[in-house]
């Protein structure tokens, strides 16, 4: 199935008013293929559409959050070819042919994976908005360094802002899942 930009034009109009509708009219739409959470997908979107917009508005995978849209908060963190990146600063043209993992992709047979469970068990969530980004940054860390020190954890998560928890429980969650 190909996911089309057209199918969400109503959402876009609702979100940003009439100006945007004019832009949609001018939009160049291209087809991009990539691997999403282990499965090949194709989308038809403007090439400068961001990965974040595509995930949320076209593929309706709303686990990835739109915090600042500016690469400051880390809420939109996904894995691109296994490395943590901001999906808000990644153009679809940069995703072509690559592999993307979102927080939804961590589920195994509908069950949360160990990082997701650790965050839940440690109570490392409050409003929850930063949580998917933090979980993906944690996942990237543990993939490259299965036994990080406290300092290494803080380094790896420094780009993910949480305004609720004070980070103590987040650190606890990562320590819980550390091998």
């Amino acid at each position: 199935m190909i996911f089309k930009f057209r199918s969400i034009s109503k959402v876009l109009i609702l979100r940003s008013g009439e100006n945007l509708y004019v832009r949609c009219g001018n939009a160049v739409v291209r087809r991009f293929s990539f691997v999403l959470n282990g499965k090949p997908v194709e989308v038809e979107v403007p090439p400068a559409y961001t990965l974040l917009e595509t995930l949320r508005n076209v593929l309706h995978l709303t686990g990835t959050k739109d915090g600042c849209s500016d690469g400051d908060c880390g809420a939109c963190t996904v894995l691109l070819d296994g490395r943590a990146v901001h999906s808000c600063l990644t153009l679809m043209a940069q995703v072509e042919g690559r592999s993307v993992t979102t927080v939804e992709g961590l589920l195994r047979d509908s069950s949360p994976d160990e990082v997701q469970s650790a965050y839940a068990e440690s109570g490392a969530v409050q409003c929850g908005y930063c949580t998917p980004g933090l979980i993906m940054a944690t996942k990237a860390l543990l993939m490259s360094n299965p036994r990080p020190s406290v300092e290494e954890i803080k380094e790896a998560l420094r780009g993910n802002l949480c305004r609720c928890t004070g980070y103590a429980k987040i650190l606890e969650a990562v320590l819980r899942v550390r091998r």
Partner: peptide, 11 residues
């Protein structure tokens, strides 16, 4: 401002 009207060429 969004970037929907911008084309991206990928060599």
């Amino acid at each position: 401002m969004l970037l929907y009207d911008i084309d991206v060429i990928t060599p």
